[in-house]
């Protein structure tokens, strides 16, 4: 077995009395696409933020490329982050910067690249997500939600990462735009040969991009298997989620 690029071992995280993650175990092999399903508020974003080191787990371990990065703050973590791309749920584009400065942010700041070179690369990358050079000098507020997602995707892939996180990439988009985003994600992840972890509650999206699917419920991964077996999981929770029923073992969070 090849060494996983990312591994979470027994990760726990609480906020006061709210025990969000209760021992998450999951791993991702290089170049594979994992989708983690889970209801709203089930802790999907918290799981990603722990993996990225934006939050520190209360217990458990996070390994990146075999290296323990759980409590690492310094160079190791920066080295890890330079190999990871992240597409935030809200896009998280910097609204004081132009589109191209957003896409090239790491090149301009951490890598100290010349502005003209960085802009050239940013425009190249925007092309990959089907955005023309004409948007490069606009501000994020001046483009549509679907375009913002594509800009955020461009920012996540510009440095050719080995692992990309997608936090609900299709939430808030109409089904057609959502499908176009899924296509782009699939295409770019394959082109880079990167591993991908996508968290979503959108089944159409999950079926499209996943090699493997896992389900997060009550702070744990309760099922995991190849994407092709999602309809034959033999797990009530997964079945309820796949078919979107309100009645079943999972209580709707109202």
């Amino acid at each position: 077995m090849t060494q996983p690029i990312l591994e979470l071992k027994g990760v726990e995280k609480s906020f006061g009395s709210n025990h969000v993650l209760r021992g998450v175990d999951i791993d991702v092999a290089p170049g594979r696409s994992l989708v983690v399903l889970g209801g709203s508020g089930s802790g999907k974003s918290v799981m990603l933020k722990n993996a990225l080191g934006l939050m520190t787990p209360d217990a458990g371990k996070i390994l990146f490329d075999g290296q323990d990065v759980t409590n690492n703050q310094g160079k190791t973590r920066e080295a890890m982050r330079s190999r990871i791309g992240m597409l935030f749920q809200s896009g998280a584009l910097f609204d004081s910067l132009t589109v191209w400065e957003n896409v090239a942010f790491r090149l301009l700041n951490a890598d100290k690249m010349k502005r003209s070179d960085a802009k050239e690369q940013a425009i190249e990358t925007l092309k990959k997500v089907r955005l023309g050079a004409s948007v490069a000098d606009l501000r994020p507020a001046e483009i549509s939600g679907g375009m913002q997602k594509r800009v955020a995707l461009a920012r996540a892939i510009i440095t050719k990462p080995d692992l990309i996180f997608f936090d609900e990439p299709t939430t808030g988009l109409d089904p057609i735009t959502a499908d176009a985003i899924n296509d782009l994600i699939l295409e770019q992840v394959k082109a880079l040969g990167a591993a991908a972890v996508t968290i979503t509650h959108d089944m159409a999206s999950a079926r499209k991009v996943a090699d493997e699917i896992a389900m997060l419920f009550e702070g744990k991964i309760i099922w995991r298997g190849p994407a092709s077996e999602i309809d034959r999981s033999g797990n009530d929770h997964v079945d309820q989620f796949v078919h979107g029923r309100a009645d079943g073992p999972i209580q709707p969070s109202l």
Partner: peptide, 16 residues
């Protein structure tokens, strides 16, 4: 506003 729209998290992931 940057905090609640995850822009501060985004800064960190981009090594800023």
């Amino acid at each position: 506003a940057m905090k609640v729209t995850e822009q501060i998290d985004a800064l960190k992931t981009l090594s800023a």
